[in-house]
Nucleic acid binder design. Structure first.
Length: 285
DNA sequence: CATGGGTCCTGAGTGC
DNA sequence: TGCACTCAGGACCCAT
């Protein structure tokens, strides 16, 4: 559930608190969180590494250490906390980094979906990170570029927006919100959306992400920042989680459908499926 | 290659 | 009240 705004919120919090500290020791209690390298090497690599910078790319947190890049993905419910050893741990704490300052960086994850990779310079990046598409705020990204890239693609535009190789950082919530704001139906074939319309969509993507970052993210299920605080953006969500409630634009009922296997929120009146579909199969009314 | 569906995992929600 | 069941979904894997 953490998408770009939530990961950015976590990044800012951690950067403030642990940049300049040093990892003394690592305790991994749930091996499945660590993907590479092997468990014993993972802790070994991180020992005595200084934390230079906490960065972000898409939904990945990037801990830039002295000689190692620690790549962390929160997936659904991963959470970090910086705490003193005497403070109680969150339930489901799976990895603990003991820091030179005496504090601990703790990783908790109810769903156990999150991952960590400790990568040395010269080693290949984790696949998902290596193949990541442009950041949504990349100025080189525009409607014309997307239109060209998606030419002939019949997959629903929602699938494309969720595909991290196309654009980095979007997830189920902000895709639904951006498509609603742009007036595009999630099932519209990606290749059928014009360049100008894609410019409008990009504008809405950037707008919704920027507003969500400003609010510290959305807490729809379980998201908390490093202090355990909720984000505040969920109250501004126009369609996500509002099935059956009135559309803020036209007042009609918001529908919930399934797209790409994901719960999808749409206002059928404000988000018509583009008629500029290929070849005259069925035309819609 | 493009596309869609299954999988991991646990807690919250639902219905009887 | 208690219990069985379904759902939630990011990235990855696999079949078509």
């Amino acid at each position: 559930m953490p998408e770009l705004p939530e990961v950015e919120t976590v990044r800012r919090h951690l950067a403030e608190r642990i940049e300049g500290d040093v990892i003394r020791d690592v305790e991994v209690r749930l091996p499945r969180i660590v993907r590479r390298p092997a468990l014993n090497l993972f802790a070994e690599r991180l020992k005595e590494q200084g934390i230079r910078r906490v960065g972000r790319r898409g939904k990945y947190l990037l801990f830039q250490l002295d000689q190692v890049l620690l790549v962390s993905h929160l997936r659904m419910e991963g959470r970090y906390a910086v705490a003193n050893p005497s403070e109680p741990e969150l339930p489901h704490t799976h990895v603990v980094f003991r820091l030179a300052s005496g504090r601990e960086l703790r990783y908790a994850d109810v769903r156990q979906f999150g991952t960590m990779d400790a990568v040395l310079k010269g080693e290949p990046l984790p696949k998902g990170l290596a193949e990541l598409g442009p950041e949504p705020f990349d100025p080189a990204l525009d409607g014309a570029a997307l239109h060209e890239r998606w030419r002939g693609r019949r997959a629903p535009i929602k699938s494309m927006l969720l595909d991290q190789r196309q654009i980095a950082g979007l997830g189920n919530i902000y895709v639904d919100e951006a498509l609603f704001a742009a007036g595009i139906h999630p099932l519209t074939p990606a290749g059928a959306v014009g360049a100008e319309e894609l410019d409008g969509l990009l504008r809405e993507i950037r707008d919704v992400l920027a507003r969500a970052i400003r609010e510290g993210g959305s807490s729809v299920r379980s998201f908390r920042d490093g202090y355990g605080r909720h984000g505040g953006f969920q109250i501004q969500l126009a369609v996500y989680g509002r099935a059956g409630q009135p559309c803020p634009r036209c007042g009609g009922a918001i529908q919930k459908i399934k797209v790409a296997g994901r719960g999808t929120h749409v206002c059928p009146a404000c988000q018509p499926i583009s008629v500029a579909a290929p070849m005259g199969t069925g035309v819609n009314a």
